[in-house]
């Protein structure tokens, strides 16, 4: 599904290399987790894959279903099936959440040559999916993420994911700012989307999210490289020994 080869990335404005040769393949139907200490390049990886400005790929490639995504515009990547759940979802005053969702869904359908959803059809689907995430009508009416609590913002991300039905989902520290109940709700939302046709890349500091979203593969990212790959037990090892222990072990 997602294939990253020898990816080198630096910040556009400064001569600072962030990713130093990342290799990673997420297969359809699998959940991969990336763990790593602060500054290891986790968020950079998610931004580079989704097409945010400010990063320069100096070497390597990233493909989604065999298609090179690094040359695509962000909206083209989205239409190709890539979705990033933001660590800090952006507030957009003045744009209603419902308008936003519908525009996004129909833009992607249009880009893929599919028929747009009518207002009625859309409403039916969104209500059903919102309900499962405990998102009420009021949250759908309000401007995108404005005045939402941390938990509401993250649930809103998962709602977008559920509506857009991407092939490849990247979750960037989706657990940050969530209490236990909110995390469970979000994790349930993600688990409901697990499907053999869909890949997940879950980026997190802590093991606790992985108690709820059980990964198939765990990678440790440190200083711009994946230093270790293993099964779910690797996450527990981090929890018990910290990143320092792992780094020492690899070195």
């Amino acid at each position: 599904m997602l294939e990253i080869k020898n990816l080198h990335v630096k910040l556009e404005d400064e001569d600072k290399q962030i990713l130093k040769g990342v290799n990673l393949t997420v297969e359809a139907g699998k959940v991969h987790a990336i763990m790593g200490p602060n500054g290891s390049g986790k968020s950079t990886l998610s931004y580079v894959l989704s097409g945010r400005d400010g990063y320069e790929v100096t070497e390597g490639s990233a493909t989604l279903g065999g298609e090179d995504i690094l040359d695509m515009e962000p909206e083209e990547r989205a239409a190709a099936g890539l979705f990033l759940a933001f660590q800090y979802p952006v507030e957009i005053p003045g744009v209603g959440n419902m308008t936003f969702l519908r525009t996004a869904v129909n833009s992607q359908r249009k880009a893929r040559g599919e028929e747009e959803l009518s207002a009625g059809e859309f409403l039916k689907v969104v209500r059903e999916k919102a309900k499962a995430l405990e998102i009420d009508a009021n949250m759908l009416k309000r401007p995108v993420n404005v005045g939402f609590s941390g938990g509401e913002k993250k649930r809103n991300e998962i709602l977008q994911m559920a509506m857009l039905e991407p092939k490849m989902c990247i979750l960037d520290e989706t657990d940050s700012g969530l209490d236990v109940d909110a995390m469970k709700l979000v994790a349930d939302g993600v688990n409901a989307l697990r499907d053999e046709g869909r890949g997940f890349l879950v980026i997190t500091h802590y093991q606790r999210l992985l108690d709820h979203i059980k990964p198939d593969v765990v990678h440790i990212l440190s200083d711009g490289r994946i230093i270790k790959t293993g099964g779910p037990e690797l996450a527990l090892e981090v929890e018990n020994n910290g990143y320092a222990g792992l780094k020492a072990e690899v070195a």
Binding site: S50, G51, R52, D53, E73, P74, E75, R77, A78, A79, F83, L84, F86, P89, V90, E91, I92, P93, G94, V95, T99, F100, T103, A104, V105, S107, Q108, A111, P143, V144, Q160, L164
Partner: peptide, 22 residues
């Protein structure tokens, strides 16, 4: 905001219009 909209598949022109109306 523009990047957020685009990352959800909204083309840049339409995303700019949405932000402008907002």
């Amino acid at each position: 905001g523009l990047f957020y909209l685009r990352s959800r598949g909204v083309p840049v022109g339409e995303a700019t219009d949405l932000m402008t109306l907002a």
